[in-house]
Amino acid sequence: MDKLITVSPSPHVYGDDTVKKLMYGVIYALLPAFLVSVYFFGIGALIVTAISVVSCVMFEYLIQKYMMKTEPSVSDGSAAVTGVLLAMNLPTNIPWWIIVIGALVAIGVGKMSFGGLGNNPFNPALVGRVFLFISFPVQMTSWPEPIVSRLQYTDAATGATPLGVIKEGLAAGVPMSRLAEQIPGYLDLFIGHLHGSMGEISALALLAGGIYMIARKIITWHIPVSIFCTVFLFTGILWLINPYDNADPVFHLITGGLVLGAVFMATDYATSPMTPKGMWIYGTGIGVITVAIRVYGAYPEGISFAILIMNSFVPLINKYVKPNRFGEEVKNG
C-alpha cells in the first residue's frame, strides 16, 4: 500500500526546532543534575547512565531495523534522552541486567509497541521505571549512601529515602517531630545530600535545568508550576490540619522525585497536553495523585504513577480543551 501522507491544516508554520535540537536541549538541561549525582554517588552514577543510554539506543536501533523494518532514527537523540531519564530514576547501585531489562521495556513496550516517537501515550522512561519498580522491588528500593559509597557500585551500603522514613515512621505511629530528626536538613535536601534515585536528589540542579529549558523554549512553565502549586497547596492544607502526622509542604516539594518528574518527565511532548489550559488540568491531576499516594497510599512516592495515570488522560484533555483556531476572536472577559 502506498504510504499515506498526512497534511495538517494551515497555517504551516516553519520553525527551526527539530526533534534532534530539542532532545539535545533536554540532555544539556539534565547535565547539572547528572553532575550532582556523580558527585554524591560516584562511579555508580556513571555506570548506570552509560548502561541505560547504550541499551536504550541499541534496542531502538534493533527494533526499528529488524522488527519495524524502517530506517533507524536513533540519531535524533530521543532514545538517548529516554536512556538518561531512565537512569535518573534508578538507584545507582542497581545491577546492570536490571537496567537492560528496564531499557527494553521502556523502548520496546513503552515506545515502539505504539509505533515509535510521538505515538506513545506513556512516557517511555517512566514505563521502564515503574515496570522495574514492581518487578524488582528489593533492588529498586535500596538506596546507596551518598558520598561514602562513591567508589562502590552494587555493593554500596544503603539506606531509606526521606519519604520512606516518613512513611514507615508515621505508619508505626511515630510523630512527625521525632521523624524530622532522622532526615537530612532542608539545605541538604535541596542541594541533594540524601538517599534517593540517581537523578532525583538535587532539587536545585533540576530546577536549574528546568529554567534553562523554559528559557530555551523547550518546555513551557505551565506543567511544572501547576504540579508544584497543587502539591504545595494540598500538603499545606493537610499540614495545617494536622502537623503531627503530616510533613510540611516544603519537605514534600524538595524530596522524592517530584522536581525530576514535574520538570523532565511530565513535560514530555508526546505524552502531555497541547494547550496551557490542558496543561493546568494535567498538572493539577498529577499533583493531587502524587500527594494522595504519598500520604494515603502504600508507596512512599507516587509521582511516577501519577504521571502515567495522567498520561492516559491526555488524549481526552486534548479532545476537550482545544486551542483557539488561528484567526479566531479571543473572547474578552
Binding site: 522491588p137 528489593v138 528500593t141 535500596s142 514507615e168 508505626a172
Partner: peptide
C-alpha cells in the same frame, strides 16, 4: 529496627511487622 530480635524481610517492613 523497632528494637526487637527479628530480621525483617528486605523492603517489606509492614508485612514483617
Amino acid at each position: 529496627q523497632d528494637g526487637g530480635d527479628v530480621d525483617g524481610i528486605t523492603a517489606t517492613t509492614i508485612s514483617s511487622r
